[in-house]
């Protein structure tokens, strides 16, 4: 029986979870020794399940992170043995291993050249193309990475993961409008992804706080608020969504009270123009709703209520801080 933690997809584990997983590696490798029967008999041996290979991959990534390169190479060996050198996913994993164990810049450069060599032979090898982009980014060459990523999206424009990555790259460069465009593309592919709605709202919020003209800021803020509302509509009790809703409505209330002159006259063409900014009353009510909901989530989570314990600790703490800030400003 494989431990369930090994079957979690491996990205972005906390360091402590990561070390726990990688500590299981030697025992796992020991217990799953290869006993390969000759071909017709191997069909009947049911020792192999899909979960095993997922577990190997998780172990490989965890071991690479914790620096247990020996176990990692063993995992990789088994995957290669099973699926062959030519398997695209295995190729990408091997590249990952080479990247992680590269000692200096020269070695990294060599890995990069290896990727380009592979891509010359099979330009449609998506996992390797993605690895190459990730490596370029890791080597602090963001413009090259962006060019490569745009090229990848030209050939495969429905790859939501790549659009999302490109959005992050643009955001890191501070080009908000491009990042917003990319996230909207992601939403075209996966219109129900509540976390992408929230992400888009966050980027809109950032861009509106960065813009100088109050009109643009107001537009960005109300758009951001609507996106947060959509993410909450798609997902009840979404802490990130309510946090953002509270933040944007508070800002909007500030902005609107400062510029009370012409909120209603901004309405343009009802078909093609932008939406009018929301009315003050509805913003007020949304703000109250967000406050109540956040308070409920924080309360029930800290009380350790069953069914409410899945939130990230950091997120709950941030939400509590936001609420505290609010009460402080009221007291003053």
């Amino acid at each position: 029986m494989i431990s369930p933690t090994l079957l979690q997809p491996p990205a972005h584990l906390s360091p402590s979870a990561c070390i726990q997983i990688s500590q299981q590696a030697p025992a796992f490798l020991q217990s799953h020794t290869r006993t390969v029967l000759p071909y017709p008999l191997s069909v009947f041996s049911s020792g192999e399940t899909q979960e095993i290979w997922q577990a190997y991959e998780t172990l490989l990534l965890a071991c690479l992170r914790t620096g247990d390169d020996k176990s990692a190479s063993q995992c990789l060996e088994r995957l290669v043995e099973r699926f062959g050198e030519k398997n695209e996913r295995v190729q990408a994993l091997r590249g990952l291993y080479d990247e992680a164990t590269a000692q200096d810049e020269a070695a990294l450069q060599k890995v990069l050249e290896g990727y380009e060599e592979t891509l010359k032979e099979q330009p449609t090898n998506m996992p390797i193309r993605k690895r190459r982009i990730a490596l370029l980014q890791s080597m602090e060459r963001p413009t090259d990475a962006m060019t490569a990523l745009v090229g990848l999206l030209d050939t495969s424009p429905t790859d939501a993961e790549a659009w999302s990555e490109l959005a992050d790259l643009y955001l890191a460069q501070g080009s908000y409008s491009q990042a917003i465009y990319c996230l909207e593309e992601v939403l075209l592919v996966t219109p129900n992804a509540w976390n992408v709605h929230a992400r888009l709202a966050e980027v809109l919020y950032l861009s509106s706080t960065a813009s100088d003209s109050p009109g643009n800021a107001l537009k960005g803020l109300s758009e951001s608020m609507r996106r947060f509302c959509r993410s909450i509509e798609l997902c009840n009790d979404y802490l990130r969504g309510y946090y953002g809703l509270k933040l944007t409505t508070t800002h909007l209330l500030d902005t609107l009270s400062k510029v009370p002159s012409k909120p209603a006259t901004a309405t343009s063409d009802p078909v093609f123009g932008e939406l009018a900014p929301p009315s003050l009353a509805s913003i007020q009510r949304l703000n109250e709703l967000a406050t109540a909901k956040l308070a409920e989530i924080v309360r029930r989570n800290t009380a350790g209520e069953k069914g409410w314990d899945g939130y990230e600790m950091a997120e709950v703490i941030a939400a509590r801080e936001l609420l505290d800030r609010d009460t402080l400003s009221i007291q003053r």
Binding site: A100, A102, Q137, E161, S164, T190, A193, V196
Partner: peptide, 19 residues
């Protein structure tokens, strides 16, 4: 969450940064 892959993209994992 089926959309978690859009937030944490395994395909673009920066393993050196993680290390």
């Amino acid at each position: 969450n089926p959309y978690r892959g859009l937030d944490e993209r395994v395909g673009f994992l920066d393993i050196r940064g993680a290390r």
